[in-house]
Simulated scan of single mutants.
Amino acid sequence: MSQNWMRHFELLLTDDNGKGLSFSDFKVTFDIEWFNIKFSRVAVIKIYNLSPHTNNRILGKEFTKIRLIAGYDGIATAVGDNQVGKVTPVSAGDVGQKNGQNFGQIYSGDIRFTITGRDNPTDTYVLIQAIDGHQALLGAVVNTTLAAGYTVADLHAATMQSFDPFGVKKGITGDMPATVFPRGRVIFQSAHKVMDNISEQCGANWQIVDGLVNMVPENQYTQEAIVLNSLTGLVGMPQQTMGAGVNVRCLINPNIRVNGLIKLDQTSVYRAALSSHDIQMSGGSISETKDNGNLVVNGIASTPPASIATDGVYIVQSISYTGDTRGKAWYMDMMCMARGSAELQVSSALNRSVISG
Rank of each mutant, 00 (worst) to 15 (best):
M1W: 10
N4R: 15
H8M: 11
L12G: 00
L12A: 09
D15S: 08
G20E: 08
D25R: 10
D25K: 15
D25V: 04
V28R: 07
E33N: 15
E33I: 12
K38E: 15
V42Y: 11
A43P: 04
K46D: 09
N49D: 14
S51G: 11
N56F: 00
N56P: 04
R57K: 14
R57W: 14
R57Q: 13
L59Y: 04
K65D: 00
L68K: 03
G71N: 04
Y72V: 05
D81M: 05
N82G: 13
K86R: 12
V87F: 05
V87N: 04
V87L: 14
V87C: 11
P89D: 04
D94E: 12
G100M: 15
N102S: 15
Q105R: 15
Q105N: 11
D110Q: 07
R112T: 12
F113M: 01
T116P: 03
G117I: 09
D119E: 15
T122C: 06
L127A: 06
I128W: 01
I128Q: 00
H134N: 02
V141Y: 08
V142G: 02
V142I: 07
T145V: 13
A147M: 10
T151P: 10
D154H: 09
L155M: 14
H156P: 04
A157N: 08
F163Q: 00
D164P: 00
D164A: 14
G174N: 09
M176Q: 02
R183C: 06
V186I: 14
V186M: 06
I187H: 06
Q189F: 08
A191I: 01
A191C: 03
K193D: 06
V194L: 03
N197R: 08
I198Q: 07
I198S: 09
Q201V: 10
I208P: 02
V209C: 09
L212S: 05
L212E: 04
L212H: 07
V216T: 10
V216A: 08
E218V: 07
N219A: 12
Y221W: 08
Q223R: 11
Q223W: 03
Q223T: 13
L228N: 05
L228D: 11
L231C: 00
T232A: 11
T241I: 03
A244F: 08
A244N: 13
N247P: 01
V248D: 06
C250P: 02
I252P: 01
N253G: 02
N255Y: 03
I256Y: 02
A272V: 11
A272W: 04
A273H: 13
S282N: 07
G284S: 02
I286D: 01
T289P: 00
K290G: 13
K290E: 15
L295V: 09
L295H: 07
S302F: 11
A309P: 04
A329E: 06
Y331I: 02
M335G: 10
M337F: 13
S341R: 13
L344P: 08
Q345I: 11
S347H: 13
S348W: 09
S348D: 12
S348A: 14
A349T: 09
L350N: 15
N351T: 12
R352K: 06
S353E: 15
S353M: 02
V354T: 15
